[in-house]
Design a protein around this nucleic acid. Structure first.
Lengths: 143, 143
DNA sequence: GTAATCCGTAACACCATCCGTTACACTTGA
DNA sequence: TCAAGTGTAACGGATGGTGTTACGGATTAC
């Protein structure tokens, strides 16, 4: 499975929700979409994944929109990654290798463990960065 | 850029080359393709990338084929990963965010550093495994 | 030198996925 | 009751990976 820009957009949106939290009230998907430069439906689809992970909540009707469910210091990039990306960092063969070949018969089992370790290494690294830290960086860069 | 199965197939092929090294002579793309269960052209395309990275050599004509250029104990999964995958572990936005938004204007710069760290973390993990180690695992699993 | 074998690469079709867009039903709040 | 939101299905376009055919070029064996 190839990587998408979902992680980037999801982090962008969460940073925006945390950054705008001083203003009162939730942010609409239309407003968020104008910052990301995309369509509101794309934003709602992505935020639905984050809602499924317990990171945000949505509210309908006038004055409705999206808001964080946790303080930004307690949301890490690992949480976001798990919410929006698939299970596997590196996919195995598209079609199964030849079972009559000793290497073909066993290579997937051999690789699976190493891939799992690599995925854990990424997640360990992503867990070091919080949305709150990104808000700080954004404020420093944007002035 | 999303992940593909290129890393898996490349590691499979290199393991096959190392495993079959006791037999004399290079392996043909047709033989390799039958183990991977794909088309010889696919194998040649992928091996061309590995050749560009100095991992294998090719030889035309009868008796020709592909062979390792280094002992399998000195080829790590990090070498293979760098040879066949793109630069970025996680892509940034497909279309640039809104420069009139403080978050949109700065989020890419803020994320770039974190993504670089994550990529290094993956590579650090992949560098712990060699093709020789995979040959051992395959032998243990296949009997 | 001739033929067989193998690589090198272009060209094309197929397929899955992602992204953007439209459309419309539903819910909420004033 | 109306306006402002979300929820979600449906569709099309773009992209990239994969599989396949085709053919030119190089090398080896005889």
């Amino acid at each position: 499975m190839r990587p998408s820009s979902r992680l980037t957009v999801a982090v962008h949106v969460l940073t925006l929700l945390a950054h705008g939290a001083e203003g009162e009230g939730p942010l609409t998907s239309g407003f968020i979409a104008s910052s990301v430069n995309t369509n509101p439906v794309v934003v709602r689809r992505l935020l639905a994944l984050l809602r499924g992970a317990g990171l945000v909540r949505s509210q309908g009707g006038p004055g409705g929109g999206w808001a964080l469910l946790r303080p930004p210091g307690r949301i890490t990039l690992r949480d976001v990654y798990r919410a929006v990306e698939g299970e596997e960092l590196f996919p195995l063969h598209a079609s199964a290798p030849n079972p009559r070949c000793p290497v073909g018969r066993t290579i997937q089992a051999a690789l699976a463990g190493h891939y799992r370790e690599a995925r854990l290494a990424v997640e360990r690294d992503l867990s070091r960065t919080t949305i709150a830290a990104l808000v700080e960086e954004v404020r420093a860069l944007a002035g």
